[in-house]
Design a protein around this nucleic acid. Structure first.
Length: 426
RNA sequence: GUGGCCGUAGCUCAGUUGGUUAGAGCGCCGGGUUGUGGUCCCGGAGGUCGGGGGUUCGAAACCCCUCGGUCACCCCA
């Protein structure tokens, strides 16, 4: 083990090649799909004023107990982003873009909690948010964006759970009703039940304690307390999902971790993961949040997808396989002057993926590297060939080797590149 | 934050009831005659057995502490 000071901090991790190639594939897939849906990239700071998060989740663990807080040299109280929605809403309130504002993001998130597989102190989320429209069709669009992304990656064991929190007034009424129900039935269930019923009655709905299940299962349900508007909205969302052929499961006891959710909430879970950490994405409506942050009343909806957890789910399903690196050409230097350097540069400028051996290693060792690099062709820069104005080109699959004119080798390789290079490249 | 399990070369692991210079496979480097990979053969480098303390004639093995990972709870992506 290395000295502790030279390790990545607890709960953080490095992503190295070739694993990082999967991140490229994943981000490209998301960016491409988001663009097709009309979403633009938004980039917000890792740091925000603490108020940005405290306003939106004062009673949640993520904000209360897990947030990385710091004071900068100017005395400003800042926090490392613990969740993705608040910064985007803050940016909306600050810049007032014309709604509907449709954006996506890729950003690191920080939470101080006990790490384990699939749960880290720094993790990355891909997400999307839409501000300025309360049309249920937008709910459907946002869910379809995430749903299609999972399918793009080849994940088949990801399913959608759907719920509605109702309008804020509905929700407030329900929370009180739920609290008094729970407290009425708290006898014999211990002080922790009592405490949690008082503090966060909603959170108790998805508690796992065996002894509590009887009481929890008979608790009043959110969806029975929806007002007429919320009811209609929720029905429209379900109709839209059905029209798109997106399967969902109604889960009245689905409770999301942030205070700001109203109306539609949802979660994507993977059957390929252990139940404790099976959520690979989640989100919902937050129709009050912009106003609470000092902006005009603006409805909003969005979701976040945890990248690390998504990759674990992909592994479990054997989806998104690691892509071996590939090269069009690997140049072997048999002369030791600048000619190999010049050739490699020329190939790269011609749009080819080309690499080479370094450090004056033996020709044999360089061919070994060529083989391991996954290159389609090995290109020998040697004295004999140079005297004839050629280079040796070896097909590393068939083993056949021939001489190609030095001046034409870039074009020769371009014609055989896989996948074919675009016409106008270079 | 609470509790359980684990920690031996870059990776995956073996190391008999504590007993002499800690091993294997893979990977890495070099060689198998002049400048050619993948198979094969030979050789080599690489470990303060996570760290510290203790028990013992003797510890990778036992005890304590600590760090890290992991699982469950909590919470969440």
């Amino acid at each position: 083990m290395a000295e502790p000071e030279y390790r990545a901090p607890v709960g953080t991790h490095d992503v190295l090649p070739p694993e990082s190639a999967r991140w490229i594939a994943l981000v490209e897939a998301f960016a491409e799909r988001a663009a097709r849906f009309g979403y633009g990239l938004v980039i917000t700071p890792v740091l925000e004023h603490q108020e940005v998060f405290q306003r939106v989740g004062a009673s949640t663990d993520v904000v209360r107990k897990e947030m990385y807080q710091l004071t900068d040299r100017g005395g400003r109280d800042l926090a490392l982003r613990p969740e993705g929605t608040a910064p985007v809403v803050r940016a909306y309130v600050q810049h007032r873009p014309t709604p509907p504002w449709k954006v996506w993001y890729l950003a690191p998130h920080f939470r101080y909690e006990r790490p384990q597989r699939g749960r880290y102190r720094q993790h990355w989320q891909l997400g999307a948010e839409v501000l300025g429209v309360d049309d249920p069709d937008v709910d459907v669009e946002v869910i379809a964006l995430a749903h299609g992304f999972y399918r793009d990656l080849g994940l088949r064991k990801v399913s959608l759970r759907l719920n509605s929190m109702g309008a804020p007034a509905d929700r407030a009424v329900f929370v009180e009703r739920l609290r008094s129900y729970l407290l009425d039935h708290a006898a014999g269930l211990g002080p922790e039940f009592q405490a949690r019923a008082e503090a966060h009655p909603l959170r108790l709905l998805d508690a796992k304690e065996e002894d509590w299940q009887d009481v929890i299962e008979r608790a009043p349900q959110l969806t029975e307390h929806l007002g007429a508007d919320a009811e209609r909205h929720f029905e429209r969302v379900q109709e839209g999902l059905a029209a798109l052929g997106i399967a969902y499961e109604l889960t009245p006891r689905l409770v999301r971790g942030f205070d700001y959710y109203t109306s539609t909430t949802f979660e994507f879970v993977s059957d390929a993961l252990d139940a404790a950490q099976d959520a690979v994405g989640g989100g919902g409506r937050y129709d009050q949040l912009a106003e609470e942050m000092g902006g005009p009343p603006t409805p909003g909806i969005g979701f976040g997808i945890g990248v690390e957890r998504l990759l674990i789910a992909a592994d479990a399903e054997q989806a998104l396989p690691p892509v071996p690196p590939s090269l069009d050409a690997f140049v072997v230097d048999g002369v030791g002057d600048a000619s190999a350097t010049a050739l490699v540069a020329e190939l790269r400028e011609a749009g080819l993926r080309a690499d080479r051996g370094y450090g004056g290693r033996s020709v044999k060792a360089q061919w070994k590297l060529a083989d391991r690099s996954g290159a389609r062709f090995g290109v020998m820069v040697g004295r004999a060939e140079a005297s004839r104005g050629t280079v040796g080109v070896k097909d590393l699959v068939s083993g056949q080797q021939l001489e190609v004119s030095r001046d034409q080798v870039a074009g020769w390789l371009r014609a055989r590149a896989e996948p074919p290079l675009p016409e106008g490249a270079a």
